[in-house]
């Protein structure tokens, strides 16, 4: 895996003549997030040094935009859509079901590190409402029991994988 500072090298190619580098701070954070799933402290320091943006400003940006995380997410990121169409089609039932099965509400990660659950505003496939997106794949026309089966299946599989990884280490 690339070291955080190597990830920063694109900064030079991002430059658009005449512009300060400040406007690439968000892009750099997105690059980090795509790579690691979150923004490690080290990356914040690197971005700050490369762009001359105070670290406090970078934290300010992270806390402002919903996309950014300061903590490593679980293996699978489950985004429960709570856009209008999903909301009126029962997305709260899905959220309650997930809480019943895994003990977490949106914004949290299960203790075993398998799932991070987030509630998001509209994934834009309203015709399939209610939907969840797991690792970028959309599952539509769900109800409580379907989401239960889906997530239990992924959970079992992931635990097995994690166990196998541990044993091979």
């Amino acid at each position: 895996m690339a070291k955080p500072d190597e990830k920063l090298s694109p900064v030079s190619t991002f430059l658009w003549e005449g512009h300060s580098t400040r406007d690439y701070v968000i892009k750099l954070m997105q690059t980090s997030q795509a790579e690691y799933g979150y923004i490690p402290k080290k990356v914040i320091k690197d971005i700050s040094a490369a762009t001359g943006t105070p670290e406090t400003d970078i934290y300010g940006i992270i806390s402002f935009y919903k996309q950014f995380r300061l903590e490593k997410p679980g293996r699978h990121v489950v985004k429960v859509c709570d856009g209008t169409a999903c909301h009126v089609s029962g997305s709260n039932m899905l959220i309650d079901q997930i809480e019943e099965d895994f003990g977490i509400r949106p914004g949290n990660t299960t203790e075993d590190g398998v799932f991070t659950v987030e509630a998001v505003a509209c994934l834009g496939c309203c015709s399939l409402a209610p939907v969840v997106m797991i690792d970028g794949k959309v599952y539509g026309k769900l109800d409580a029991s379907k989401v239960k089966r889906l997530m239990k299946r992924i959970h079992r599989k992931t635990l097995k994988e994690m166990k196998a990884e541990q044993e091979s280490n």
């Binding site: 968000i26 997105q30 943006t53 400003d57 402002f64 996309q67």
Partner: peptide, 19 residues
């Protein structure tokens, strides 16, 4: 980066500038 208010034009400008 996930902020509804950035659709507002002056907020959008701030966001493009990196704020």
């Amino acid at each position: 980066a996930g902020a509804f208010v950035c659709g507002e034009e002056t907020a959008l400008i701030a966001s493009i500038e990196g704020y």
